[in-house]
Design a protein around this nucleic acid. Structure first.
Lengths: 218, 218
DNA sequence: CCACTTTTGAACTGTACGGTACCGTAATAG
DNA sequence: CTATTACGGTACCGTACAGTTCAAAAGTGG
């Protein structure tokens, strides 16, 4: 037997649905949402127009599927980088570097679909998805910080919530610079520096303190 | 006397050019670039269609004018907040809070034209403008840091360049969250915390296992 | 009041787009 | 081999859009 599964009747598709979805991602990613026409998608996905409508629905529905798949992929990589068993410094740097790498991939559009493209889509479902994704990422980073506190890597008074959202803000900034063309090498260095920054001690400030013990209080 | 200047011949315009430009800003800001039609602009600006083409050229030219005007306005506010004579902490917080306020203005679209809309415009001139604007802002923050070093507010080994780009990254993150609907109050608090963060001393770390500089063995 | 200049509003034109119907084709079931 | 089912490519339709044309309106100079 060639097949155990009852293969569906009729002529089989000659395109892979997930592959087409990935190609659609590239199209949206490089041209934005409003800038994309159905013909762009047809050309980029290698799927006939009627098939596109039959399988994926209209542009909005397709974009939502793309967004969901992309979000899961990126979220998975981010979670993997963040939660793998290593020091908090390495986890954070890995998380940020992972974002940079995704945003500066060769052969792919620069930036990030979730950061650079989706926020402009005037659609309630898209907005909701983005909000959920954002809170999810922040929660993930917070959790990593708490683990680090439990492990004694961070002081117990480490400002978990504030630093978590700062990490995500910095990540967004890195991604946007990637979109504007900042080279990967620079961004990777900046990712490391960002990881250093958010792990700085809260007990001392540069401001108001001067070397050699001379203090200038503000 | 109604006029000292020789009023130009012909039928006078019944719209103010700068006012129309500002209204155009709102239109682009709220709908994105590709999402905007000429009819949207005609309706939003209160200018007849032929007048729009005659005075501003096509959509691309209009957008470039809008971008330039917006950039100067925002850059001016940012520079004012940053360079007014106060402590480095207050300057930074003012700069970030200024961005937040601009991004959460009532009656205006959320976010920022330069951060949320313009990066998606596939136009070489727009991209160039954005790059110049970005490097300009970073340079401004760097300059403020150097002034603070001269004033003894910061140690002489303060990593000026790194922190400057981090400030801008954090600012972008705040702006993007504004676009997604995070309330102004939250963002203002986060702006203050961001200012605190970038002024933390580089000499000590929170991490108990990690010492100054690089790396824990990984 | 008349010639001249410039802007305005409405109507017009060609094109590009979204979405669908049609028909030939590829594969399976009996 | 025939019937059935589903896909793929083309052509099609109605709409929305960008950009222009044209006459009327609103001013100035004489």
């Amino acid at each position: 037997m060639i097949k155990n599964y009852t293969r569906p009747r009729g002529r089989p598709r000659n395109f892979d649905e997930l592959d087409a979805l990935e190609k659609a991602t590239q199209v949206f990613w490089s041209k934005g949402y409003d800038g994309v026409t159905i013909d762009d998608l047809v050309a980029g996905m290698g799927v006939g127009r009627p098939s596109l409508y039959a399988v994926f629905g209209d542009k909005r529905a397709l974009f939502l599927r793309v967004l969901k798949a992309y979000g899961e992929a990126k979220g998975g990589r981010a979670a993997h980088a963040l939660l793998s068993p290593q020091s908090i410094r390495a986890s954070l740097a890995g998380f940020l570097r992972c974002n940079v790498e995704l945003a500066t991939e060769e052969g792919s559009a620069r930036g990030c679909l979730l950061v650079c493209v989706a926020p402009l889509v005037a659609d309630a479902d898209v907005q909701q998805f983005l909000q959920n994704a954002a809170t999810g990422v922040v929660a993930l980073v917070e959790r990593r910080f708490r683990d680090a506190i439990s492990a004694g890597e961070l002081p117990s008074d480490f400002p978990v919530a504030a630093r978590a959202s700062q990490v995500v803000d910095l990540s967004r900034g890195l991604t946007m610079r990637a979109q504007l063309g900042t080279p990967r090498k620079t961004l990777l260095k900046d990712a490391d520096e960002a990881a250093d920054l958010v792990l700085l001690s809260t007990s001392r400030r540069s401001s108001g303190t001067v070397r050699k013990g001379r203090a200038v209080r503000s």
